[in-house]
Design a protein around this nucleic acid. Sequence first.
DNA 1: AGCTACATGTAACGAGTTACATGATTAT
DNA 2: ATAATCATGTAACTCGTTACATGTAGCT
Lengths: 178, 178
Amino acid sequence: MSLAHTILATLGDESYSGYDLWKKFSQTSKYYWQASQQQIYRELGKLEKEGAISSEIIPQEGRPDKKLYRITEKGIEILKNWLVEPAEPMAIREELLVKVIAAKLVPKSVILQEIERHRQIHAQQLSVYKEIEQEKFPDVSQLSYEKKCFYLTLRCGIRYESYRIAWCEEAIALLGED
Amino acid sequence: MSLAHTILATLGDESYSGYDLWKKFSQTSKYYWQASQQQIYRELGKLEKEGAISSEIIPQEGRPDKKLYRITEKGIEILKNWLVEPAEPMAIREELLVKVIAAKLVPKSVILQEIERHRQIHAQQLSVYKEIEQEKFPDVSQLSYEKKCFYLTLRCGIRYESYRIAWCEEAIALLGED
DNA sequence: AGCTACATGTAACGAGTTACATGATTAT
DNA sequence: ATAATCATGTAACTCGTTACATGTAGCT
């Protein structure tokens, strides 16, 4: 359900084409919702049919035409109604943990290397987020309400990666000892 | 993909009926993979067709018959092959964060209350996990390799809930100030 | 009389992934 | 030449959710 709401929330600030939305989802929206290009195009089609968004074709030279989407009054109403309804915490599905549960079937080094690989991926992502934090949010107390909200999603990304790294380190330490 | 592997990993230790698996998924498997009863029945059907598991019907008095599933040699092979392949970190999809992004459309109190509600849910879950930790794992250094692996999934659950709580507290503090 | 636990499933739908299809421009 | 970027989409499939369907036993 939330892909539609994420798109509506994004279109609430600015108009985007499907392609632009996809890029935005690959970059800044990454720390709260992920979606593929195909999913976004499909969802845009649905939202337009429902009347939550409208589109306008922008002709371009030397490039394919682009379809620029904007949110409608109806779309804003849909968003507002969704915002006041409570949401349940998301279901946890961690493939790495399933591997840890089945770990005894393969040599210990296989699992240890896989955990170490994940630690590195998360450490890499964490450093990207921390750079964004330093560059874009040097003084948090001066932020507007809206900017604070966006900042908090980045903070969640930072905390998420930190939690993953800490767990990987604990796992390597515990399983690595003989 | 991983639901099949989670079921195979669970059946690796013991035989279960679909109903038993569902209960297990609602309790201990909760911190690494969640699945509904219907999903489990469907997946069991598929896995049996593939020959990864086999079933035996156990007649019971005063209760419906139960179908007890066990993993086959082929199922163990499937698990092993999956274990040595690298897995990517899971995609992040946090509905609460999408709400924070769209927060400006509703009064501040709506979002603050929703975040507080989530903080409480996670705090509740954390206390359940901590009780399990104290009861079942009083001395970590004495655990077998297999038990250590299981313990680590609980530790991940504890770290996850702690990270969620910490973020909620940060968000309430930042948005709550005037 | 109604609720919970036990036990297994089907059907329909919504969400997410993977593969395929097209075609121009710009950079290496 | 080849790859990457821009730009939009269809089709098929798998995975996850919700609703429906059936029936017994035991508790309150």
